[in-house]
Design a protein around this nucleic acid. Sequence first.
DNA 1: GCTTTGCGTGTGAATGGTCACTAACATGCT
DNA 2: AGCATGTTAGTGACCATTCACACGCAAAGC
Lengths: 195, 195
Amino acid sequence: MNTDLSNRQLEIINVSLELIAEKGIQGLTIKNLAKKIGFSESAIYRHFDNKIQILIGVLNHFEGISEQFFKQEMENDADSITKIEHLFLLYFNTFSMHPSIVAVIFSEEIFRNETVLLEKVAEVMKGNSSKIIEILEKGQRKGEVRFDIIPSHLAIIILGSLRMFVSQWHLSRYSYDISEKGSDFIQSIKTLIST
Amino acid sequence: MNTDLSNRQLEIINVSLELIAEKGIQGLTIKNLAKKIGFSESAIYRHFDNKIQILIGVLNHFEGISEQFFKQEMENDADSITKIEHLFLLYFNTFSMHPSIVAVIFSEEIFRNETVLLEKVAEVMKGNSSKIIEILEKGQRKGEVRFDIIPSHLAIIILGSLRMFVSQWHLSRYSYDISEKGSDFIQSIKTLIST
DNA sequence: GCTTTGCGTGTGAATGGTCACTAACATGCT
DNA sequence: AGCATGTTAGTGACCATTCACACGCAAAGC
């Protein structure tokens, strides 16, 4: 796909992330971008064909974080339950440090008429989902994860719970520390999926 | 709150729902609204102060559906697990018949800088959540719902799973019948929360 | 009973704002 | 000489909202 980004491209993506964190997806405009970089607006177009390509860059960035996590996590020999716990911890940390990611990954509605972006989001979600399923299947084989619910359903439940937890945090206007309150919640999830 | 809407106001809200269903929240513009009703744009402003009031109307509409459901469901004497099942069924039906609702209720990100709307969404979510908690608590007392996870966590898990399930359906571009595929999923949720 | 007044509801045209994007031109490095 | 990268000044599209004006109906005044 689109590998090797130039420094300028990376800068644009980083500033995009900052902008989204500050003002939400709607705040990501070429004008704001240019202002924040200290650029003219037209200069952006020397580095990206259009705004959609920038958003794809942002999504690739998030995809990268996920992939790196799963790669690292699949290799170690922690049990499945612990891996899922790590996943929650990673997301809580990532989200509280880069709230922009929440905005991008959870806003299918905004991308509604941008097929390319919708597909990219779907792809990222599917990637995450299949990795989780893999972890769960292995966990079932080792007798750590309950057998009576198929992994694909468990994955929906896990991802959905995670997202809802973050959503509530968002709706509360970030009024509490998500990592702290999250650790209780993780215990419940563990109880739920364990044998 | 804002009770008694005029016929015209109701018409505007209904057409808004249709528009959102067709083109997403972004498709809900005064221009489209006026065109679809057969109105001039300025006529809209005879019935609503501004666009935000229309969206609040839409959210109230959804709130009404939920309230009505819970009212009816709390009164009958089905067990808690069945009530939760009914909730899923209701949502699957509502969503497949009025996809607009999904768009509105799940798009906190779009309302990001509209405090009033964010609060309204938060309110609706909180209402649903507390009703579910109520059902679960009763279920625990009657020994139908597992005791080892607190109801507030179970509610997050239930609402989150529901939402994620719908999200995936959305991302798949409504490529399957959500009610049909949903009934399997409901079984898993029941297994998960039962004693 | 007729006129007048005013209100509810509609209209077309315009306003000022934002948006993504482009064209023509400039500069400096290789 | 040519390419990468920047600039200024637009373009046209769309947006929510407002303004001055028009029509018809219903109550109030005579």
